[in-house]
Amino acid sequence: MTEFTEIWTYLARDPLLWLTLTLAAYGVGDAAFKASGRKPLINPVLIAVALLAVLLRLTDTNYATYFEGAQFVHFMLGPATVALAVPLYANLGNIRAAAVPMVCALFAGSLTAMISGVWIARALGASPDTLLALVPKSATAPVALGVSDAIGGSPSLTAVLVITTGITGAIIATPLLNLLRIRDWRARGFAVGVASHGIGTARAFQVHETAGAFSGIGMGLNALLTALLAPVLAPWLIGLY
């Protein structure tokens, strides 16, 4: 028993354990996704997060310790975002041809995300502080946190809302888009990227490369539009005027 405790003490402090478990948990999620016949509800991110959250709770490990291992995975988000330029470039012809629909869809999706989120929460009695954190939830995390801070919301609450928005988008996109009977991969990908940023884009790449490329543009453009519009819209939405 002492030996096990000693090994555990070593492992618990070493980044290797949680890095390995992060990859393994995602492996389990991905295998479940594939075994289900790629059903959108069986989301690999959601499964991996749930497994790891249970493990952290069972082993009484705090997030800081976990992140020492997981940061190597988290770090790759930066270069992966830069790499989105490659499918964008591969779809250059598609993008040029779709510039006008993209700009219109950007404003429609971005404004709907900000306005409807606040209105629904306000109708259900959420406090004004909470509403402010909700405004930038569809933008990619680094932009959303900065915007939330700038308009007086709580960045840590916004972080939770951004991630849940992303996972929600990844799960509901396929059934919702099928229900709406839109088969255009450009339109499908773009709308998902605007509404649910990188996690939606990751889902779009699982489905179709053109959808993924357009989702990446949607994410980038909505980051910009949210940063510009949220500070103007927020006081009006929250009803301070």
Partner: peptide, 27 residues
């Protein structure tokens, strides 16, 4: 605010995807 936030996240994500995709396809 849990219930209000969960409803807002799910509802507004669905509305935003719908608004975006219908506008794109329509235009």
């Amino acid at each position: 605010d849990g219930l209000a936030l969960a409803t807002a996240v799910i509802g507004s994500t669905a509305l935003a995807i719908s608004a975006g995709v219908l506008t794109f396809a329509g235009v």
